[in-house]
Computed example of a mutant assay.
Amino acid sequence: MKHFKTAALAATIAISGVSAQAQDEANYVLATASTGGTYYPVGVALATLVKVKLQPGEKIGMSAISSAGSGENVRLIREGEAQFGIMQGLYGFYAASGTGPLEEVGPQENLRSVTMLWQNVEHFLVASDAATTGTMEDMVALKGEGAAMGRQNSGTIGSNATILSGFGIDIESDYELMFGGYGPSAEALQNGQVKSAGIPAGVPVGAISQLMASAGDSVTLLNFTDEQMAQADGDRGLWTPYTISAGTYPGQDADVQTIAQPNFLATSADVSEEHVYLLTKTVYENLPFLQAIHPATKVMAIENAIAGLPLPLHPGAARYYAEVGIDIPERLIAQ
């Protein structure tokens, strides 16, 4: 495996012909999601790390912008409006295969992985007067009611639609949808505009912490049974069991069994190999910096850097991982 990896990487590097000396100054845009979730603060942390560690000496800058999330981030990178984006593993799967919401535009052949980041934990909440079982069965029972499933064209609404389709739910026809980011979704549930909300993000989610602190026991965070976990994943191999430990959120006095999928950092194949190499190296040599800013990044470790990545690695990231001794499977080496 190592011989193949070394030869493939050497060929990739030779073809690119990129050197540090040949690089010009660069100011990259990192697309995240709505400000109430986890993508945005982690994106700001990454951009801050780049500005602190790479801008002074390497003249590499980065700015994090809020967006509608994974779905829009695919488009922003495709159209050159952003060079990096944080995405759900599901949207990496869609991008690689040209399926789901990307069926019309087809496979995103210019999209590359940089690193796994953290798990996107599914939080399904309902008004407590509708929580008869405390499981996803309650979500299914709310047909015809208002539901906050995310912004239009967001990764949030896409993953919520995919998960609920496993329960025979078509969110567009079965719910009265309220479109909004995490903060507005939480507020809509609290004030009775909707009966349910789906908010996937790294734990803890700021908008949910605020909601449960202010709404108290009038909202319930739902559990998944083992059978419901299998229904939600639908044999994609993306979602795995996840426990939200008691005390994670205000008033949460018991563990909540839910599911999670991976989040990862994506980029365009057109971005300089040297710059992606330096970015990847800087991230893994400064993990405490990121982890001090947002707890979701505390799960990051070099040993997990390529776990579950849905798209081939950018050659710059692949070069760094090869240097630190990570065996890169053939499927992750860009052709």
Rank of each mutant, 00 (worst) to 15 (best):
A45Y: 08
D24A: 14
S128I: 05
Y28N: 11
P41Q: 12
G80Q: 09
I86Y: 06
I163Y: 14
D138Y: 00
E103C: 00
T162C: 00
D138V: 09
A141V: 06
T38H: 07
G146I: 09
N153D: 08
G155L: 08
P107E: 11
A96M: 03
G134E: 01
V44E: 15
V140C: 11
Y40T: 13
S70M: 06
Y94K: 04
N73E: 08
K59L: 06
E109M: 08
T38I: 03
N27G: 10
E103V: 04
I60F: 12
T156P: 02
L54H: 02
M87G: 03
G106L: 13
S66G: 08
Y94V: 05
G61P: 03
G43F: 06
K51P: 00
A95W: 01
E58M: 11
G150W: 06
Q88H: 15
E145C: 02
T132W: 00
G69F: 07
G43V: 04
A45N: 11
E58T: 00
D138G: 04
E25I: 00
S128R: 11
N27L: 08
L125G: 00
M136A: 07
M139N: 05
L102M: 10
T32R: 09
R78W: 00
L90H: 03
S113P: 03
R151V: 12
K59W: 05
G57A: 13
